[in-house]
């Protein structure tokens, strides 16, 4: 079986799918949650956590078979893993490689921490957060998810 050597670790190659590399250590599982991949989802996923990175330090890494990430999913990942790289793999080769960018406004990804916020009701409304110097602010109730809080808890 073919193996690729990447950043010093041996990982099995995938034919088609997406590789998310350089994820902030510890956030690999949050990335999966953002992508809506959880128990019972019929997708082959490999998560590597706290592996040494060629760029120094450690990183998490996620490989997803047979799924190519879309632009808005990529943006969501930036919330917890701003340094992530997204490689779309087609026929074992990196076909597209992109970086992620924290969007100025995030619609429908973050759950407002304020239980009394109108976005946490049965109203047909998606949450809207805007980037703030110290975190993300709910456009409806002004609640702040500060940089000290783990935004992954609200995704």
């Amino acid at each position: 079986m073919v193996k690729t050597i990447s950043d010093g670790i041996v990982i099995s190659p995938i034919k088609n799918g997406t590789v998310i590399d350089h994820i902030t250590p510890g956030e690999g599982l949050t990335v999966l949650r953002i992508l809506g991949i959880r128990d019972g989802t019929n997708v082959t996923v490999i998560v590597a956590s706290n592996v040494p990175s060629s760029r120094g330090g450690r990183k998490d890494m996620v490989k997803i078979e047979n799924r190519e990430l879309l632009k808005d999913e990529v943006d969501k990942i930036a919330l917890v893993a701003p340094d992530a790289t997204i490689s779309i793999i087609r026929n074992f080769k990196v076909s597209v490689k992109k970086t992620v960018e924290v969007p100025k406004q995030i619609t429908g990804v973050i759950k407002c921490p304020n239980p009394n916020c109108i976005t946490n009701t049965k109203e047909p409304v998606q949450s809207k957060f805007v980037v703030h110097p110290r975190g993300f602010r709910c456009q409806y109730c002004d609640s702040l998810i500060s940089s000290e809080m783990d935004i992954g808890d609200y995704i």
Partner: peptide, 10 residues
């Protein structure tokens, strides 16, 4: 006037 924060914006 509404009990939920952000109701007026919605």
């Amino acid at each position: 006037r509404h009990p939920k924060e952000g109701a007026a914006r919605l």
